[in-house]
Design a protein around this nucleic acid. Structure first.
Lengths: 161, 161
DNA sequence: GAACGGGTACTCGGATAACTATTGTCCGAGTGACTGTGG
DNA sequence: CCACAGTCACTCGGACAATAGTTATCCGAGTACCCGTTC
């Protein structure tokens, strides 16, 4: 089980975007440069955030990305789902319906869902709840507590160019 | 984020193995036939379970697999870790140390762990706890509740050959 | 009749190949800003 | 001086390639059983 690397990038970018002036768009290349990331690929991830409404984008000169809504309205689950998809980790393929095992459920098939599937779903649910409980604003506040200079530093760095 | 398909197979096989006589080994081909799975590939997964001590294996005629310990001692987390690896879903690559972002932590580097990483770790922890709280014995009992005929059916089917 | 040794068939285990998904790159479409011209 | 049209440079967005990871297959190593032989 592995999350795509883009999730990390996207989360950090959201935090940074929460610190720049709301009316200022930051272009992908600039966001990438802050962490030495491949610009074109980060752009791809930001596209995904855009499709999910987490950021809004604008083409052309003075274009770029900005948060699509307040940072307290964006959860980590939103970000993870936008980049990595919202499918749950365990996909029940229903193997118990195949072969001799299928006879057990006859004649009307299994009625209750697979116990294995339910077990994993319950774990998934906790994972999702925990991510949904943490917003970009929360993370930004935490970063600020550990490093009070961060917001200003970020804002000014993105203001240049 | 996606778990390997083998996790599902392994979980079901563990449940089935919990129902056959403890001194009877079941060969991979037989376990596979029960669900119409590719035998050689399932064998690979069972190898992984063996390396983790979840099942014990024996070569040669009358060989096969059996549970390495009582089903109440095997958690779903054990199974998932054996097949899918125990690394957590979110791997912090520490991008904040790269490029201009790295200057923020200067001169002695960041001291507290990345807030994004911590957020995902907390979700991971809940996921793991939930899986670790459910044993193969629990799942087997649940299957039995939904379908009381299952244990006998399985035991007898695996007894033939 | 019992014990022993060799052969045989069977099953796991890891090495090898095919395939799918993720990661990375590139170029075209769209957009706003700038410049020069005319009123 | 102001308004306007044309041109240009810039940035996103999706199409295309490279790489890594997962899925599937195959053959060799090891093991217990069976059978024939010998004491």
């Amino acid at each position: 089980m592995k999350l795509r690397e883009g999730v990390e990038w996207a989360a950090h970018c959201c935090i940074n975007l929460s610190w720049v002036a709301p009316d200022k768009a930051v272009k992908a290349a600039r966001l990438a440069a802050f962490y030495d990331l491949p610009a074109a690929y980060l752009n791809k991830q930001l596209n995904a955030l855009g499709r999910a409404g987490i950021v809004s984008s604008q083409s052309g000169p003075r274009g770029g990305f900005r948060l699509g809504r307040g940072p307290e309205q964006i959860t980590l689950m939103d970000v993870a789902a936008a980049i990595d998809g919202s499918a749950q980790a365990f996909l029940c393929t229903g193997i118990r319906h195949n072969g001799p095992a299928g006879e057990l459920g006859a004649p009307d098939g299994y009625r209750t869902p697979c116990s294995v599937s339910r077990a994993f779903s319950s774990a998934d649910l906790l994972w999702r709840r925990q991510l949904a409980a943490q917003t970009v604003a929360d993370l930004a506040a935490e970063v600020r507590r550990a490093n009070p200079a961060a917001p200003d530093y970020v804002r000014h760095w993105f203001d240049r160019n």
